[in-house]
Amino acid sequence: MAAIVYFRKISETEEGVEYEFGDDPGNFERRLTMDKASRTSTVQDALVDHTFLKASRKLHALHAERGLWPERGMSVS
């Protein structure tokens, strides 16, 4: 069974980056925040599940690869 998550940046400050994410790119239902200093992520609804972890890990990987927080993206496994 495939797992997919889409994400899109909605804001960025000196302290953090906020993304909306979910399994439907036309209807994001959740948000996560990446703390730039600690490189930790939190989810707005406090539900730490596979979808949140998948989005968070992909965002970290893209940032490490490119040196910038991506505007949008997806992860498929």
Rank of each mutant, 00 (worst) to 15 (best):
Ala2Asp: 14
Ala2Pro: 15
Ala2Gln: 13
Ala3Gln: 13
Tyr6Asp: 06
Phe7Trp: 03
Arg8Asn: 09
Lys9Asn: 03
Glu12Trp: 08
Glu12Gly: 09
Glu12Met: 13
Thr13Arg: 15
Glu14Cys: 03
Glu15His: 11
Gly16Pro: 00
Gly16Lys: 11
Val17Lys: 00
Val17Asn: 03
Glu18Asp: 14
Glu18Gly: 02
Glu20Ala: 04
Asp23Gln: 12
Asp24Cys: 06
Asp24Val: 08
Pro25Tyr: 13
Pro25Gly: 13
Gly26Arg: 07
Gly26Ala: 07
Gly26Val: 02
Gly26Trp: 07
Phe28Ala: 00
Phe28Glu: 01
Arg30Lys: 15
Arg31Trp: 01
Arg31Cys: 04
Leu32Val: 02
Leu32Ile: 07
Leu32Trp: 00
Met34Pro: 01
Ala37Pro: 03
Ser38Asn: 07
Thr40His: 12
Ser41Pro: 08
Thr42His: 10
Val43Asn: 05
Ala46Ser: 15
Leu47Phe: 13
Asp49Pro: 05
His50Gly: 00
Thr51Gln: 02
Phe52Arg: 00
Leu53Asp: 06
Lys54Pro: 00
Lys54Met: 15
Ala55Asn: 12
Ala61Met: 13
Leu62Gln: 10
Leu62Phe: 12
His63Ala: 10
His63Gln: 11
His63Val: 05
Glu65Thr: 13
Arg66Tyr: 08
Gly67Thr: 13
Pro70Asn: 01
Pro70Ser: 06
Glu71Gln: 07
Gly73Gln: 00
Met74Arg: 13
Ser75Pro: 00
Ser75Asp: 15
Val76Thr: 10
